[in-house]
Structure formats: structure tokens, C-alpha cells
């Protein structure tokens, strides 16, 4: 038989444990939220080109129910050089441009930069089986169809 003092102590112990768990949960939620906001801000401020001459293409991922369909816009890419690889649930797309494109035609600020290729790493909702993926290219847009099952 425990004394009333022991019971009271047990209640306080449980309350303290619960408080510790709530604090830990809130801290984790706040940390994740801040990290998400930071990532969004970094992503929004990131340019789609690098000074090494690589352009990042625009892309979108659609869920059509039975498949995921990825569209990647690769204007002015040499279609014969388009290379698509799958590493886990990432799709890596690379292609060379038809010829080097210099931004100095657009703006003197970038006069040293010449672009020669595209590269994008697209995170996919699943790790696809590369043998079942279908790829088509039309007018500089690439369509990658990934079956879900």
C-alpha cells in the first residue's frame, strides 16, 4: 500500500512527464515549420542557372491516378543528348543545348556566363522501375510516364 504522499508524488511525476513530452512535441513542430519556411525562402530566391553554365529547366509532376507524369521543359536542347536516370526516388535529367547560349546578349551583367546544358533533379513520390517508365519528347518538352504499380 502506498502512502498518500507517494501517490501525490506519482501524480506530479506523470504531470512532469506529460509536460516534458508536450514541450518536446511543440519544439519539434516549431523547428519543422521554421525549417519548411527557410527551405521555401531559399527555393524561392534560388536562380534557375549556375555560373558553371548549367540551366535548370522548369518541370511539373502530375498524379493521374494510375501513373505519375513528369513534364520537363527543355527548350533549345539537343534532343539527341537528353539523358534520364533514376536513382532511388530521384530522376536526374541532363541535356546539352543546341549551341552555347550567352546571357550577355540579354544583359551585360552576366557577360561572362555562357550556358551549355540543362540539369535537373526531380524528387518523385515513388522509386520507379526504370524498365517500365515511358519517355517521349515533343518540341523540346519531355514527358516521363511512371506507372504506380
Amino acid at each position: 500500500m502506498s502512502s498518500p504522499e507517494d501517490e501525490l508524488e506519482e501524480i506530479f511525476r506523470r504531470i512532469n512527464e506529460l509536460r516534458r513530452r508536450i514541450e518536446s512535441f511543440v519544439e519539434e513542430a516549431v523547428r519543422r515549420s521554421l525549417e519548411g519556411t527557410r527551405r521555401q525562402a531559399v527555393e524561392a530566391l534560388r536562380p534557375l542557372w549556375s555560373s558553371e553554365g548549367v540551366l535548370e529547366p522548369l518541370y511539373s509532376v502530375r498524379d493521374t491516378g494510375r501513373e505519375y507524369v513528369v513534364y520537363v521543359d527543355l527548350p533549345y536542347a539537343n534532343e539527341g543528348t537528353i539523358d534520364v536516370k533514376f536513382i532511388g526516388n530521384e530522376m536526374v535529367i541532363e541535356a546539352r543545348l543546341k549551341s552555347e547560349v550567352a546571357i550577355n546578349g540579354w544583359h551585360k551583367r552576366y557577360q561572362e556566363t555562357k550556358f551549355h546544358s540543362y540539369r535537373a533533379v526531380v524528387k518523385l513520390p515513388v522509386a520507379p522501375d526504370p524498365r517500365r517508365v515511358r519517355i517521349r519528347v515533343r518540341k523540346g518538352v519531355i514527358q516521363v510516364v511512371i506507372p504506380k504499380d
Binding site: L48, L58, P75, Y76
Partner: peptide, 8 residues
């Protein structure tokens, strides 16, 4: 194509 590239 170049306009698309530039408008990304």
C-alpha cells in the same frame, strides 16, 4: 525556343 529558355 530561346524565348522559352529566357522566360523560365
Amino acid at each position: 525556343e530561346l524565348i522559352r529558355l529566357r522566360a523560365r
